[in-house]
Structure formats: structure tokens, C-alpha cells
């Protein structure tokens, strides 16, 4: 019998429940993954389990940029060839990954770990804004790029930070807003299309 004598959940169901908690994984996918693991050789499943535990043990936040890292300071902050006059502020560690993939930015980052969302009870004090101000006092940045998500909460966060740092005499910029590559003009909403027209460039 799979059932348990100690009053806990049976191991198979327990794993299904754990998978089910992950983003994008519903009960059916959780079941499929679990049954895949049952058929898997033991060393492979142990290696997976070890990878998860060691990841959780070794990952820390960089004391400078607050990105997730194994070493403090992180690879980007400790890289001497990065441009130390530019700082790009982003919401999430995944945004750093996305920006790094473009290979067009060589400055430093600052991860806020969220955006201001008053209606969900997330205020400026819940984000890494204070450390950002500290950092700006210590280091000599020439340009701050506010690369928040182009939605209301991201904009509110940008405006809030801009109001805080506006008098420090640093150039504050943000990425251009416009049409996505590979998109259809007719499906662009008014806000995006309007911004795209405002920010048009010489051909």
C-alpha cells in the first residue's frame, strides 16, 4: 500500500503537490513530471535533488547590485572591464539576464526586486530603493537608466525614483518605448503607437 502509517502524504502525492506549486505547472503537468521521475535512474533524480538543495544553499544576493549570485560581489559588479559610469536599474534578476543577452549594455545593474504596487500593498520601502540611493552617493555614476517594465507599476516606480534622485545632477534616462520587432502595426495599442511616433528617428 502506498498509504502511510505516519499520517503524512504518500511520497508520490507529495512530489505532485510540490511540482504543482511551481509557476506554470498545473496538476496534470505535475503528475507527468512525477511519473517521469519515477521511471528515471536513481542517480539522475539524486543529482536533480542535489542541484536544487545546493542552489538554495549557495545563492546569495550581491551586496552591491542585489542580483542573485554565488559570490559577493557578483561577476558583473567585480568585472573590471564594465563601464562603472552607467547604472541600469531593473525590477527582477531575470531582467538582468534579458539585458545581458542584448550585448549592448556594458554598465552595472541594480535590482529592485519588484515594483511599487500600492493596490497590492507593495510600497517603496519593500524594494531595494534605499540601497540604490546609498550606492549613488558612494559611486560616481554619470547616467542612471531606469529600465522598469513599461506598465503602470513600473512607470510609477520610475517616477518615484526619478523624484528622489532628480536633484543629484545625474543624467536619468529610460529605454525607448515603441513597436516590438516582428509585430503588426494594426495590433499595436494607442499608448504604444503614440510613444513610438513621439520617439521616431531619422531614417
Amino acid at each position: 500500500m502506498i498509504g502511510d502509517s505516519q499520517g503524512g502524504t504518500p511520497p508520490v502525492q507529495r512530489l505532485i503537490d510540490e511540482f504543482n506549486r511551481l509557476p506554470g505547472i498545473g496538476p496534470k503537468s505535475a503528475q507527468r513530471l512525477t511519473y517521469h521521475l519515477i521511471r528515471m535512474p536513481e542517480e539522475q533524480s539524486e543529482s536533480l535533488a542535489a542541484a536544487i538543495t545546493s542552489m538554495k544553499r549557495q545563492i546569495i544576493l550581491c551586496s552591491q547590485c542585489f542580483n542573485i549570485t554565488e559570490r559577493d560581489p557578483c561577476d558583473i559588479c567585480s568585472n573590471a572591464s564594465r563601464d562603472r559610469s552607467k547604472l541600469c536599474v531593473v525590477e527582477q534578476p531575470l531582467d538582468v539576464v534579458a539585458l545581458e543577452r542584448t550585448s549592448t549594455f556594458s554598465g552595472l545593474y541594480h535590482v529592485l526586486h519588484g515594483s511599487i504596487s500600492p493596490i497590492n500593498g507593495i510600497g517603496p520601502e519593500d524594494l531595494k530603493i534605499r540601497p540604490l540611493l546609498e550606492r549613488m552617493r558612494i559611486e560616481n555614476f554619470v547616467e542612471i537608466i531606469l529600465a522598469m517594465n513599461p506598465n503602470l507599476e513600473g512607470e510609477a516606480t520610475s517616477m518615484y525614483i526619478n523624484r528622489l534622485i532628480g536633484d543629484l545632477g545625474v543624467k536619468v534616462t529610460r529605454p525607448a518605448r515603441g513597436l516590438p520587432v516582428g509585430g503588426d502595426l494594426e495590433y499595436a495599442d494607442e499608448a504604444t503607437l503614440g510613444r513610438a511616433l513621439e520617439g521616431r528617428q531619422d531614417f
Binding site: 497590492n120 520610475s158 517616477m159 526619478n162 523624484r163 528622489l164 534622485i165 532628480g166 536633484d167 536619468v172
Partner: peptide
């Protein structure tokens, strides 16, 4: 209400920044 603390924070904030819409 959750949004009141942010509202108070913003309205009491000095406008010493450029305060131009970003």
C-alpha cells in the same frame, strides 16, 4: 486601505527632483 500609505508618502514628498514625467 493599502494604497493610502503610498499616497501619503508621495504627497508629502518634496518635489526637489526634476519631477518631469519620465
Amino acid at each position: 486601505l493599502k494604497s493610502t500609505s503610498f499616497l501619503d508618502q508621495v504627497t508629502q514628498m518634496p518635489l526637489n527632483g526634476t519631477n518631469t514625467p519620465l
